[in-house]
Design a protein around this nucleic acid. Structure first.
Length: 376
DNA sequence: AATCCACCGGAATCGATGGCCT
DNA sequence: AGGCCATCGATTCCGGTGGATT
């Protein structure tokens, strides 16, 4: 399954990211007066793009090669990044293209997360934003108008990162993008087969060529190195031991996002208690905590009706559609229709929050339990 | 075996929303 | 201000599926 990212969480990323590197003065002053673990909390967020990417040199250079033609004013073939969650796909895509844009500032980089921007309109809009042509676009602007504007804005080469492309609901937009001669794409997804299965033939044949970079899960040592780098940039050096980093890396099962999440959670707790270092018991608490954090976030951000459905299913453990609807109907004020509820349920299944077993009559819904098992 | 029925999900449509144009 | 138009979530309608019932 794709990296589960809560809807609406990614949106502010680009803006937040720009600020990274400058520490807010208020933060410093605040922390000097008390014991402290965290020096720069932005380093521990998912959006952070490290200035040096650890252990992905080969992958980065392959991606750089793929986008190389842009430096000489040409257009790059599509590039693909595949791999499971938390292996640094998004990170190296951004990193590599940032570097590219540094070498040739006329290149515009657009980042589109297809969990949020899953329609043709929104993708085109994001592209226009990248070339500062989105100023007077509104919801009623015709899509052809957007497309035409992109077409005529061809003095600046654009590279677009389409993150989680497999979430794109209108994959035809890839065809549109492909027809724009000055736009190059980097597609990020979990698995190649599943991605291509979603494409229609036109798109599939256009994207057959191109560079594929596949990322594997990190080993424990690699994760330790990544964590150590974050500690160096974001925490007090003495606050965490190597042994503890190893423990975190172990628990994260190859997923850097989880590893950093554990570190963040433990550090925040330590800081909250006024300690100046992480204790082992704190770490033990933080591990299951961070494992569920991403998921928890999605649940909390669920719109009320979907949240109600989630709660009902959660309380029953396993429930049949009709009972589910009845319970939901009781609990919600102004309940939605059955059809709408069905839409909600498919959406929630899509997010891996609930799962349906059985067909037709025998169908039941249940909560998807966290897939990561407790190692203790 | 025929019929019923709970359920799924596609397609068309509605209505609220919000900017544009005259 | 008033008409226009596109988007979007919700709803209505409906055909298909397959286990349950008669």
């Amino acid at each position: 399954m794709a990296g589960v990212t809560a809807p609406g969480v990614i949106a502010p990323v680009r803006r937040r990211n720009r600020k990274i590197g400058r520490r807010s003065p208020s933060l410093k002053i605040l922390q000097r007066e008390q014991t402290t673990v965290i020096v720069d909390d932005r380093v521990l967020t998912e959006a952070f793009v490290p200035s040096e990417v650890v252990h992905r040199h080969e992958e980065i250079s392959r991606l750089s090669e793929a986008v190389e033609p842009l430096l000489s004013g040409g257009r790059a073939d599509p590039a693909f990044l595949f791999g499971p969650t938390g292996v640094g796909k998004t990170c190296i895509a951004r990193y590599t293209l940032d570097q590219l844009a540094e070498r040739r500032p006329s290149i515009r980089v657009a980042y589109v997360n297809c969990w949020q921007e899953y329609t043709r309109f929104r993708v085109l809009y994001s592209l226009l934003e990248a070339v500062d042509q989105a100023y007077d676009v509104h919801r009623s602007t015709a899509q052809d108008e957007l497309y035409g504007r992109l077409r005529s804005a061809d003095e600046a080469p654009i590279v677009v990162i389409l993150d989680e492309v497999d979430q794109l609901e209108e994959s035809e937009v890839l065809y549109d993008v492909h027809r724009l001669p000055h736009v190059s794409v980097v597609l990020v997804a979990n698995r190649e087969e599943e991605l291509f299965a979603r494409f229609d033939d036109r798109v599939r044949s256009r994207f057959r060529a191109g560079t594929r970079v596949t990322l594997d899960r990190y080993g424990v040592d690699e994760l330790v190195a990544i964590l150590a780098e974050r500690v160096r940039q974001g925490l007090e050096p003495e606050s965490v031991t190597d042994e503890q980093l190893r423990q975190i890396a172990d628990a994260a099962a190859g997923d850097a996002r989880v590893a950093i999440g554990i570190l963040r959670s433990a550090a925040t707790r330590a800081q909250g208690r006024g300690d100046d270092r992480l204790t082992d018991s704190l770490l033990e608490d933080a591990i299951p905590d961070a494992r569920n954090a991403i998921r928890q976030k999605t649940i909390e951000n669920l719109p009320t009706h979907q949240r109600t459905l989630y709660d009902v299913i959660d309380e029953h453990g396993e429930i049949e559609p009709s009972d589910l609807y009845e319970a939901y109907e009781d609990r919600a004020d102004e309940p939605k229709t059955r059809r709408t509820v069905r839409n909600y349920l498919t959406k929630m299944a899509h997010y891996d929050l609930v799962e349906a077993t059985g067909e037709n009559r025998g169908r039941t819904y249940r909560i998807v339990e966290s897939t990561i098992v407790d190692t203790r």
